[in-house]
Amino acid sequence: MSARATTAHSVVEIKAAGKWFAGILVAAYALVAVIPLAWILMTGFKSPPDSISYPPKVVFEPSLEGYVNVFTNRSRQTPEYLESLGPPKAWYDKISRKRNMVITGPSRFAGRYMNSVVIGFGSTFLAVFLGTLAAYGFSRFKVPLKDDLLFFILSTRMMPPIAVAIPIFLMYRTLGLSDTILGMILLYTAVNVSLAVWLLKGFIDEIPREYEEAAVVDGYTRLQAFIKVILPQMRAGIAATAIFCLIFAWNEYAFALLLTSGNAQTAPPFIPIIIGEGGLDWPAVAAGTTLFLVPIVFFTVLLRNQLLRGITFGAVRK
């Protein structure tokens, strides 16, 4: 009798039902999250008329026009002039000729993209580097007012960036940092360091002190113990922190819009204003966005094992 009662309330059964429920929930959320991405991916391969057709086309003839347009500047010419140029040489010339255009040169997209790369990776490296050192100090040493300092560091994250944008704009103008790559690296580093310190401190706290102490007793200096013992065990934490910092710096829009223009502009404020004939060139915008997503996806997939362990603070062991 008791055995039957046990089966009826089986832990396994509840788990299975829970799993189904969780599965449906995750699938539903994934659908919602994936649709915009799918739409962007598709729009990148549509022709401009297809991209704005109503009702929206799900089946369409793929075209690389968006990708050509995002990388080039073009000008419209008369059919006579185009005739005089002879047949188009490269495949991209062919695509623009169809719209009575000639490519006049590369667009600013590649430059903006490079700015994003330099600023994103530069600030991520700096934030993780400084964050690691600070987190180690906070984790291992008696720091006066430690809790207050940690809270202060975190509090810099509590206001929206736009709240400090004006003061920073004025400050940067005075310092000659506005619209410079260095200025943007410093700014993103400052914002990310708080996140990095908190995340990394959590990871270092998890590493028993005995590891370093054993090394110190064995004759290593503290720095050597840190490099040989602590750093290798922080790999997952550093990877997770770096991805978070990179995602922030990579996607940041408000500061970039306000503080950069001709020189140090990153891709986020540039992509949405790619103008074609008669308004926004949606396929080009979508193509730019798709290319913009690639590095983050690449690094997230590359580091996914470390990330999983890192995000769960080591709870998931490989």
């Binding site: 028993p208 005995e210 590891y211 102490e213 054993a214 110190v216 007793v217 064995d218 004759g219 290593y220």
Partner: peptide
């Protein structure tokens, strides 16, 4: 610790 030339077996870890 280093110059004391000691070998330490810890309780754990």
């Amino acid at each position: 610790p280093a110059p004391r030339n000691i070998a330490f077996v810890f309780q754990q870890y």
